[in-house]
C-alpha cells in the first residue's frame, strides 16, 4: 500500500514498523479477546448514569441567531468569501484542558 502523502525517507521504516506491530498487536488482541465475554454490557449496567444536562428547549435555530453561538468569529481567512460563507473559529478557552501527564 502506498502513502497518500510523502512521509519522507523514513517511510519504509515506518511501514515495516506498522507491519510488525500489526502482527504482534493482532496476536495480543486475539488472546485478549478470547478471555473477553461475548456479552455486551447493557446500558443499565454501566457503572454510572451520564449526567448530561438537557438542552434548553428555547434554543434559537434561525440563521440570524448565529451571533448567539459564541464569541465573535476569530478567523476570517477569506474576507471576500466570508460575506457569502460565514466561517469562524470560536475560542472556547473556558473549557478545561488536561493537566500535563508528566
Amino acid at each position: 500500500m502506498a502513502f497518500y502523502v510523502a512521509v519522507g525517507p523514513r517511510g519504509l521504516l515506518f511501514r515495516a514498523g506498522m507491519i510488525l506491530t500489526g502482527v504482534m498487536g493482532s496476536l495480543s488482541y486475539w488472546l485478549a479477546s478470547r478471555r473477553r465475554t461475548a456479552t455486551l454490557l447493557t446500558p443499565g449496567s454501566w457503572p454510572a448514569a451520564l449526567p448530561v444536562a438537557e438542552a434548553p428547549s428555547d434554543l434559537p435555530a434561525a440563521p440570524d441567531d448565529r451571533a448567539l453561538a459564541g464569541p465573535v468569529p476569530a478567523m476570517h481567512l477569506d474576507e471576500a468569501a466570508g460575506e457569502e460563507f460565514g466561517e469562524s473559529v470560536s475560542d472556547l478557552s473556558g473549557l478545561v484542558l488536561l493537566d500535563p501527564l508528566c
Binding site: M75, F85, S88, V89
Partner: peptide, 20 residues
C-alpha cells in the same frame, strides 16, 4: 471546501470550527 481557498483551520485548544 474544494471550491474555496484557503480552508478554515483552527489553532490548538478547544475550538468550534464553523464554515459553510
Amino acid at each position: 471546501d474544494a471550491r474555496r481557498n484557503p480552508p478554515v483551520i483552527a489553532e490548538g485548544g478547544p475550538r468550534l470550527v464553523l464554515s459553510d
